[in-house]
């Protein structure tokens, strides 16, 4: 089964951290990534730029409208994701719990929809 682990954390608070703390967190992320590559869980991942860079797009009656900012304003923001392969939800939760941001933010685990295209 494929699962998407969505990482939510307070990016505003993150910006005020000393450089050494940020570097430490990055190192933890690299170590986490190495470990899930070794265990075969890793499929892909990306970190996102801050929500201030987000644009939301809608098309109504054939007209495109864009608004600055994310779709949803939350205290903790979507900061990135890991796409993983896991035996089942429990296995996926064990992986998600090792994502460094789970300690200061939250990680939403969602199964990926599988469908065959005819």
């Amino acid at each position: 089964m494929k699962y998407l682990c969505l990482i939510y954390e307070d990016r505003v608070a993150g910006k005020t951290l000393p450089k050494a703390d940020i570097e430490k967190a990055m190192k933890e992320y690299w170590a986490f990534e190495d470990s899930i590559k070794q265990s075969g869980h890793y499929l892909g991942s990306n970190a996102l730029e801050g929500t201030e860079t987000a644009t939301t797009v809608r098309v109504r009656n054939g007209k495109i409208s864009t608004t600055d900012g994310p779709f949803v304003e939350t205290k903790e923001q979507l900061g990135g994701y890991y796409l993983i392969e896991a035996k089942d939800l429990n296995d996926a939760i064990q992986v998600a719990a090792q994502i460094p941001s789970a300690r200061w933010g939250g990680v939403e685990v969602r199964p990926v929809h599988l469908y065959r295209r005819s």
């Binding site: 719990a97 789970a102 939250g106 990680v107 939403e108």
Partner: peptide, 14 residues
């Protein structure tokens, strides 16, 4: 990727 509905979601914190 398409995701399964939100009722299948679990949120993890440490």
């Amino acid at each position: 990727e398409r995701l399964q509905p939100v009722h299948t979601a679990t949120t993890v914190r440490i």
